[in-house]
Simulated assay, not measured.
Amino acid sequence: MPADPRREPVAVFISGTGSNMAALLYASRMEPCPYEIALVASNNPAAPGLALAAAEGVPTFALSHRGLTRHEHDAAMGKAAERHGARWIALAGYMRVLGSAFVDAWAGRILNIHPSLLPLYKGLDTHARALAAGDREAGCSVHLVTAELDDGEVIAQARVAVLPGDTADSLARRVLIAEHQLYPRALARFVGTARAEGC
Results as ranks from 00 to 15, higher is better:
residue 85 G to N: 15
residue 101 A to P: 09
residue 9 P to L: 04
residue 38 A to C: 02
residue 20 N to T: 01
residue 175 V to M: 12
residue 87 R to P: 04
residue 84 H to I: 09
residue 42 S to D: 01
residue 196 A to K: 12
residue 55 A to N: 04
residue 83 R to A: 15
residue 81 A to T: 07
residue 123 G to K: 03
residue 159 R to G: 04
residue 164 P to I: 09
residue 97 V to A: 03
residue 108 G to E: 07
residue 166 D to L: 02
residue 65 H to I: 08
residue 49 G to Q: 06
residue 120 L to R: 14
residue 8 E to K: 12
residue 100 S to P: 12
residue 20 N to I: 00
residue 84 H to F: 06
residue 31 E to A: 15
residue 168 A to R: 04
residue 5 P to D: 04
residue 123 G to I: 03
residue 188 A to G: 06
residue 52 L to N: 09
residue 62 A to Q: 09
residue 93 G to W: 02
residue 42 S to V: 00
residue 17 T to L: 06
residue 165 G to C: 07
residue 173 R to D: 14
residue 92 A to V: 01
residue 117 L to K: 04
residue 7 R to E: 09
residue 123 G to S: 06
residue 196 A to S: 06
residue 101 A to D: 04
residue 118 L to H: 13
residue 158 A to D: 05
residue 40 V to M: 06
residue 70 R to Y: 09
residue 1 M to T: 14
residue 132 A to V: 07
residue 146 T to F: 10
residue 165 G to V: 05
residue 15 S to F: 00
residue 78 G to V: 07
residue 153 E to K: 15
residue 63 L to N: 08
residue 149 L to E: 01
residue 37 I to M: 14
residue 17 T to A: 01
residue 25 L to W: 01
residue 106 W to I: 04
residue 83 R to W: 10
residue 163 L to G: 03
residue 68 L to R: 15
residue 11 A to V: 05
residue 168 A to W: 03
residue 29 R to M: 12
residue 168 A to L: 07
residue 78 G to N: 05
residue 190 F to Y: 05
residue 18 G to A: 06
residue 170 S to K: 01
residue 75 A to K: 09
residue 62 A to P: 10
residue 31 E to T: 13
residue 48 P to F: 01
residue 82 E to T: 15
residue 148 E to T: 10
residue 31 E to C: 05
residue 183 Y to L: 12
residue 141 S to H: 09
residue 146 T to A: 10
residue 41 A to F: 08
residue 152 G to P: 10
residue 145 V to N: 02
residue 119 P to R: 12
residue 61 F to P: 11
residue 167 T to M: 05
residue 15 S to D: 02
residue 124 L to E: 08
residue 170 S to R: 02
residue 38 A to K: 09
residue 58 V to G: 07
residue 127 H to V: 11
residue 143 H to D: 01
residue 179 E to L: 11
residue 192 G to Y: 11
residue 4 D to M: 09
